[in-house]
Amino acid sequence: MTVANPQQTFPGRIMEVTLPAGEGGRSVSVGGQTALPLLPEGERPNAAAIGIEIRTGDEDLPPSLSHAFGGKGTDPAVLAGNLVEESGAQFLFLSLAGCHPDLGGHAVSRGAGIVRDVLQAVPCPAIVGGCGEEETDALLFPAVAEAAQRPVFLSYADEKNYRLVAGAALAYGHGVVAWSPIDINMAKQANLLLGDIGVPPHRVLIDPLTGGLGYGLEYTYSIVERIRLAGLSGDAALARPILCHLGDSWKAREALDSAEESWGDVIARGRRWEEATAWACLAAGADLLVCRHPDNVRTLRGMVGAPWR
């Protein structure tokens, strides 16, 4: 062709991280690439990985999810087993929301017990999330790290609790999701701090905080693009896989409200709200997506596979 070659090359390579599976499960590797996402250029040994989230505790499910989860069980281990199998999720994100005082107030031992049961029932790789309440999580992470009978990732370590989470992870051979509030400098600092206390780089994932569609997604979009460009340009502390957790897309009124008829069917709309958030995150550079809707897991998995490798 007479026009220039539009392909780009970068000096950096994103760290490859493997999420180990249990017996009979398939481990998942992400990262390892030297290119921007969704383009036929550079080396791209791994496609983005798509996971599904299961939450414990009392929660009014969004209509779209309650429709999708109908008849799949309420016990976390049963629900997780069914949803992972049906959706083809490559990993499970188990949120122990039920340990939050407002969402069930489960004892820490119960949370840890659920982790044990779920890991037994589901052999795929797992990330275990805390409940978001600082004091509870301080007890929960060490208990989960001990209870998990195989390596998982703990989500998440932030500026305040990173010593505790990383300590629990190191003691039992787990990985860490490093969280930062849509801030590239804090994302970098979190990785450096974890490195300083001995967490190996191939056991760290970046969670840049994912805003839901319509509610701050654009900030996440640009931070993910910037983190990825910095990593590919040679900033080793940012050359890590990025995890986007799409949970916030289910907090938008537009994903939940069944009263607004002109917005279309809420079951279809809720699912689309999460799906659009997912595509934007992938386009920006996410390596792992955590969905709640099993149909979105299936759709995304079907499309981010072979042709984009």
Binding site: L213, G264, R269, E275, A276, A280
Partner: peptide
């Protein structure tokens, strides 16, 4: 609208 509203919202964000 269940297709178009999310897409228009994504456009508004980006």
């Amino acid at each position: 609208p269940a297709d178009i509203f999310p897409l228009l919202t994504l456009r508004q964000n980006i």
